[in-house]
Design a binder for these strands. Sequence first.
DNA 1: TTTCATTTTGAAATTGATTCTCAATCTCGA
DNA 2: TCGAGATTGAGAATCAATTTCAAAATGAAA
Lengths: 155, 155
Amino acid sequence: MKRVAARKPSAAAARERLASWIASRGLKATRQRDLIVDTFFTQTGHLSVDELLDKVTARDSSIGAATVYRTMKILTDAGLASARHFEGGQTRYEAALDRHHHDHLICTSCGRIFEFENERIEELQARVAEQHGFRVTHHKLELYGLCKACQERQQ
Amino acid sequence: MKRVAARKPSAAAARERLASWIASRGLKATRQRDLIVDTFFTQTGHLSVDELLDKVTARDSSIGAATVYRTMKILTDAGLASARHFEGGQTRYEAALDRHHHDHLICTSCGRIFEFENERIEELQARVAEQHGFRVTHHKLELYGLCKACQERQQ
DNA sequence: TTTCATTTTGAAATTGATTCTCAATCTCGA
DNA sequence: TCGAGATTGAGAATCAATTTCAAAATGAAA
Ligand SMILES: [Mn+2]
Ligand SMILES: [Mn+2]
Ligand SMILES: [Zn+2]
Ligand SMILES: [Zn+2]
């Protein structure tokens, strides 16, 4: 039996949650899904399907892109991943289990993504919504610009 | 000479600004562009290219979609329109001349879009950026949910 | 175990918004 | 009026994502 690399505790929990999600709706467990989910939770950050596909096909080159798309949709529906639609193209996914809501700073030069939480901003948003009689289901706050490193690099 | 419908004062200003923008970079004035620009500034709100194309082809059915895309790009580059990328596909454009920065509430049921300005939120965003040593170029704050009317309609 | 209805898969086709290409047509300064 | 250069509309191309479909895999019941 092969020894398995240590994994983040949340990864195991996520796999368990996924198993019951799958069982509870008559879906079936598959080798491909397991591998994709395992690969996803082994990574950190905000992954595009393309990037994830690369890691996945490095492990099993027979897995198709459609299956990765489909699996990430399942993870999202199960609340184990969140889909983020930043500017400029592909959807990115991040692990969602045991994570607080947070927003993002995106460097338009190097593409790095930073996270922040700001309770005060959330409150003010809620107040704005209230003033409009609006019931907010979700929101998006994204700050685009140059990260510290890129500012320094550009002198 | 045909009488022209009364138009918002900003529309005339925008056309003037566009004329000098076009002249200043060796572009040429065209009938199609005039008609598209005129149609755009006659409308209010956040228009998709498809919606704009409909209004445009109602006036001249020979105008192609590519020309509408190209014209909206010019208006955007000239700072006379802003492109908004809300959830769900197409870019929407709104008039930008003499408008403050503002953010949006988007009803996911009826699609209506409401605007707000909140100086306090802007300040807090600036502070967040500062804490990360980030130089923000632009940001996006969008609140999605049900507008008042849609809440009431759904009982 | 075997059966077999159901789900899943990978490849390829399709979608939908947008951009590009290209030959024909227009614009505008000389 | 001329002609270099810009613009046009149609259709092709692009790109991420979804759908289709026939073959393969899964798992509950027998
Ligand atoms: Mn994040
Ligand atoms: Mn607006
Ligand atoms: Zn950077
Ligand atoms: Zn509504």
